[in-house]
């Protein structure tokens, strides 16, 4: 395990400018120590009001994710997985606490910076694929690149390469309706990687897929994590999908109940496939 950065030196609240920590991080990275926490949630609380009644979606979540880690968030529906994902993805802001992406407080970003963050730093994969229905597979993958200012030709070339990488080389001009669920999710994976993000957030990526296809997607994510040096955070409530995880964070009723490392998982589950008894 790489050396941990001295967390004490990282200030609690850090704005988008002039702090020494990320610089130091860069130096560490050059030295091959990719150990800086790319995601840091500190005391994140979020309250929703449903019909006037407050619902504590998150009750103070502390979580740090290292660069290159594959973290699965496990928990029943309603446990706050999606809320936590939205916070980390810069789609929502905590009522209390802070979310840092590369040590930048997401809450401190303006609209343009948030859009930039979503475009460049984060790749999203959704349960329902969320491809643009009127656009072909390659156009879907090109969208984030065009938003990032890449030229049409460059975006096209890279999108084609990415689709080939996820095994869809022959179907790049198909519209989403002409693709199976697994193929659509592959397009979504390619799209998530389009701008070389630091983090891929996958919210129940296998939720709408059958077991076999779901496993394929998870294996692919695991492989891509290595190839693209991305940090993967994946939410699931399916024990079978934990195989690729370095760590599994169990979320229950808006709080982290416990965290397991890969080694502990192995002991618990024996083989990670087909065993549905698990924790919980």
């Amino acid at each position: 395990m790489p050396e941990k950065p001295q967390e004490a030196e990282v200030p609690e609240v850090m704005l988008a400018t002039e702090t020494a920590a990320p610089k130091r991080g860069a130096e560490e990275d050059k030295a091959g120590l990719l150990a800086v926490h790319v995601i840091r949630a500190v005391g994140v609380k979020r309250i929703f009001y449903l019909g006037g009644e407050p619902v504590n979606a998150l009750r103070g979540v502390d979580l740090s994710v290292k660069r290159g880690e594959y973290v699965s968030i496990m928990g029943p529906s309603g446990s706050g997985k999606t809320t936590l994902f939205n916070m980390i993805g810069g789609l929502d802001k905590p009522d209390q606490g802070h979310v840092y992406i590369d040590e930048v407080d997401v809450a401190a970003l303006d609209t343009f910076e948030l859009a930039w963050l979503r475009c460049h730093k984060i790749g999203y994969i959704f349960q329902t694929f969320n491809l643009i229905p009127v656009a072909s597979a390659i156009e879907n993958v090109m969208f984030p690149m065009l938003f990032a200012g890449t030229t049409q030709a460059e975006a096209q070339q890279k999108a084609a390469e990415l689709l080939k990488r996820v095994g869809l080389g022959a179907r790049i001009f198909h519209k989403p309706v002409a693709l199976s669920g697994g193929q659509q999710q592959r397009v979504a994976v390619a799209r998530a990687l389009a701008n070389d993000p630091a983090i891929v957030l996958a919210d129940e990526p296998t939720g709408n897929l059958d077991l076999h296809t779901g496993e394929e997607i998870i294996r692919m994510l695991e492989g891509l994590k290595e190839d693209f040096h991305v940090t993967v955070m994946s939410a699931t409530h399916d024990h079978k999908m934990l195989a690729a995880s370095d760590r599994v964070v169990y979320l229950s009723d808006g709080a982290i109940s416990h965290i397991k490392r890969r080694e502990e998982l192995d002991i618990k589950f024996g083989t990670l496939q087909g065993d549905d008894k698990g924790v919980g």
């Binding site: 400018t17 660069r67 910076e113």
Partner: peptide, 26 residues
């Protein structure tokens, strides 16, 4: 994958790039 297969250190450095300003789509 030319742009994504940058050398390790370049890649690491780019990951630490500051939050930028999103550009308008032409």
């Amino acid at each position: 994958m030319s742009s994504s297969a940058d050398s390790g250190s370049d890649r690491a450095e780019s990951l630490h790039g500051r939050i930028g300003h999103q550009v308008q789509l032409p």
